[in-house]
Amino acid sequence: MSEKGIHIEEHRDDEASKLGMWLFIFTELLLFGGLFLVYSIYRWQYPVNFHEASLELSVTIGVINTIVLLFSSMTIAMALTAIQKNNKKLALRLIAVTLLMALIFLINKYFEWGHKFEHGLYPGSDLMALLERGHLLYFSLYFFMTGLHALHIIVGMILLIIAYFKVKKDSVNSDRFVFLENGALYWHLVDLIWIFLFPLMYLIT
């Protein structure tokens, strides 16, 4: 509103922003979908090797990380509810909890991977070259898929940190919250991918 009372229409379309985010999520789903396709073909060709190799993973760490991610997914959805209800303080706290959960997930992943690295099991290592073909394929897919997933966790954290400061500065508020909504959508995508990664990587019989 100018001093003369001329109303300046703000250029903004939340629906379109959200649709754009969804289109991006579709590309992400197909990216991981391609990897799941490769995984399922090789698992079908080397069922015994995949089972043996999966025994190397700790189901306990997998379960902890699953619950951590599911919980963080709820807290970020709650953060959006809080901002929509104009409860800024609660929204900030919930985003902070989500970020903490993301950090716990990454720390777990660090120990999980670190343990394998200590045993000489990492992409390009001498040990990997000596493995049977099915084992090699399993571990290559394991490192690539969980690695790409962890990368998405880091990107999601960056988005949520930006959202945190936007909420703090009131540029994300109960009237315009599409940035937080899209950030939350991205975070749920990360959770969604893990929902399929966990049983396929850790629980092979």
Binding site: H188, D191, I195, F196, P199, L203
Partner: peptide
């Protein structure tokens, strides 16, 4: 069965969280 349950979980996340 594992994939079916994962599908149900995915559906819940998509429907309610997203």
């Amino acid at each position: 069965i594992a994939l079916l349950i994962a599908g149900v979980k995915g559906f819940l996340v998509l429907s309610y969280f997203m």
